[in-house]
């Protein structure tokens, strides 16, 4: 590739996020075996697949929490592979992790405050989040560990939304929640998606297809299927053989 062809921050065709041949290991365990994917600005992209195929590791690789040993992660056309996690996050990549990862001994408000960058104005973001999640405002002085699972998930999403993020990596947002709470979480994610691009890891297949514009199906650490979510069901043969146990 010549220098002129190399993607730059201004190159809109480069997409918001691109993974190219990403190989990630935990110790000697080879988890991602050459993942390629791209995410365009404004879309919701679902990563689907059975447990242990590398969905969460893909998100961790993007954030450089588990840095890839091979391959490239590009954000806005710039290679972020090998950067510190906080540098990737500062670029505008937010994370709503699988197990919510609340700061349990901080209050709800402190959990939100810690997510707002030092250069951002806090008050408008605080009001925005509390308007969106009235429950959180009600419990703003409560330590996060005392919230219900659903409230914690709302707080995790809220935390991702206030961080001035252009890309939100959302991992298993419906896991362990009652169906009624899942509906609220879905509403919150739709609200968030109006502001940010999203990569969604979700075991609940219909939910993932309902929320996402496109999907990547992972198996054994690499992408085996991808495309638009329109009309895709779990009965689809190409999906079923990878999702069934």
């Amino acid at each position: 590739m010549s220098e002129a062809d190399a993607p730059t921050a201004d190159d809109e065709s480069a997409g918001l996020l691109e993974l190219e041949g990403v190989h990630t290991y935990y110790g000697e365990s080879h988890i991602l075996e050459g993942v390629d994917l791209s995410v365009e600005e404004g879309e919701i992209v679902a990563l689907i697949g059975r447990n242990g195929v590398g969905k969460t590791t893909t998100l961790r690789s993007i954030l450089q929490l588990t840095p890839p040993r091979e391959g490239t992660v590009r954000y806005r056309g710039e290679d972020v592979t090998g950067e510190s996690t906080h540098e990737v996050a500062e670029r505008g990549v937010g994370w709503v992790p699988e197990d919510r990862r609340m700061f349990g001994y901080l209050t709800v408000e402190e959990n939100i405050r810690v997510s707002v960058g030092p250069d951002q104005e806090y008050e408008p973001l605080r009001e925005y989040v509390f308007d969106l999640f009235p429950d959180l405002e009600r419990f703003r002085e409560k330590e996060a560990r005392n919230l219900s699972g659903g409230q914690q998930q709302m707080l995790a999403i809220a935390r991702g939304m206030v961080g001035d993020n252009d890309l939100l990596l959302v991992d298993e947002p419906s896991e362990g929640l009652a169906p009624m709470i899942v509906d609220q979480v879905v509403d919150a994610l739709r609200e968030a998606s109006a502001e940010t691009t999203m990569v969604l890891v979700e075991q609940n297949f219909p939910l993932a297809m309902d929320l996402a514009d496109r999907f990547y199906l992972l198996d054994h650490g690499s992408v085996v299927e991808s495309g638009s979510t329109e009309g895709v069901t779990a009965d689809d043969e190409r999906i079923r053989r990878y999702l069934s146990a």
Partner: peptide
């Protein structure tokens, strides 16, 4: 102080603090 808040959060989960864009090191 905001820095104190980062430290208290980091005491619970430094990886999550890092993922929020804070240089925990």
């Amino acid at each position: 102080t905001l820095y104190g808040l980062y430290i208290r959060a980091g005491s619970e989960d430094p990886e999550m603090v890092e993922a929020l864009g804070i240089d925990v090191r």
